[in-house]
Amino acid sequence: MNPVNYLYLAGLLFTIGASGVLIRRNAIVLFMCVELMLNASNLALVTFSRLHGNLDGQIIAFFTMVVAAAEVVVGLAIIVSIFRTRHSASVDDSNLMKL
């Protein structure tokens, strides 16, 4: 088997995650889709690390995880505060970006 298959898998997962962001309306699920996209890119980075034979790819994947953790913390806090004020976790209910 060619390790390139890992890259195909990563691409597939990334695409599914992106479609999920577009389709799902629950803000939490939306966030989970973003996490899936990040994980897919991590998989690609790990595979590239193996391709090139150095660990830099893994380091970047590691940093991605840390940043993702930080992002999730802040994002969920935002979801909670939105839910408190609007009593809904649906992103469609808060079309406040329109004037």
Partner: peptide
Amino acid sequence: VGGALGML
């Protein structure tokens, strides 16, 4: 992939 689709 099954998990991802399931989540979706």
